[in-house]
Design a protein around this nucleic acid. Structure first.
Lengths: 119, 119
DNA sequence: TTGATCGACAACCATCTGGTTTAGTATACC
DNA sequence: GGTATACTAAACCAGATGGTTGTCGATCAA
């Protein structure tokens, strides 16, 4: 494989590369939102905001369902996982430098579920 | 914070969004390479390839040192860590969907260092 | 010193991005 | 019915992106 051809990853990383789209993701991590709710905190017009949502949809980071006149959006976790796994694969070769990351992730894991340690 | 203003993350995710640049990163995960080595497997001209390297440098994913007429590039892990941490922060809200990721990461961790389990 | 190699730089081009404004459709509400 | 609300779609624009070709400088090696 000469070049890492993966249009899916292209779209995911590209979607994450804009602050407005990361802000949308952050909002959606709190649950479903309609387009007006997503657009209002962004410093741009409504059509511009919906374009960003569309970019997130193309990356499959967001799915929408239509309820009446509202378009409710929700976050999809799988592409975030793919992005993480891509970066994580280099940890093998860069272990020393990544040691701090391991500890951070372990902290996050234990903060989030202090009761049930898996494995 | 209205919008997730972080030009550093912008640059990192943008750098990761092109297959040629991911291929360069993959090559560099095997150790230092000069520009010719990085460019040759890519299906494009040399100047195009060096532009991609420059994008990676702007994201601080790559640093170069000049030795004679060769420019040796090496990977920097910190920005990859930042990217991972950004996506990981949503795992709290999407735990069930991310459970599979935890297991995969644990597998990678144990494959890579089967002897010393930290913590 | 000559030639080959490694790389920078500039100019150019097509396409994509990220924003706007304007106009239009469909649903909900009084 | 009439009006506000939620959203789409199209046209337009400036600037960024991703590629090319051509020219040049510096270093290594014979």
């Amino acid at each position: 494989m000469v070049v890492d051809q993966s249009p899916r990853l292209d779209r995911v990383f590209h979607a994450l590369a804009h602050p407005a789209r990361r802000a949308i993701i952050r909002q959606l991590s709190g649950g479903e939102r309609n387009l007006s709710e997503l657009a209002s905190p962004l410093r741009m017009t409504f059509p511009a905001a919906t374009k960003h949502v569309r970019v997130l949809e193309r990356a499959d980071l967001v799915r929408r369902r239509v309820v009446g006149r509202q378009h409710l959006c929700r976050l999809r976790a799988a592409p975030l996982r793919d992005a993480t796994l891509w970066t994580e694969q280099f940890r093998r070769n860069w272990e020393a430098r990544f040691r701090a990351l391991d500890e951070l992730l372990d902290e996050m894991k234990s903060e989030e579920q202090p009761r049930s340690r898996r494995r």
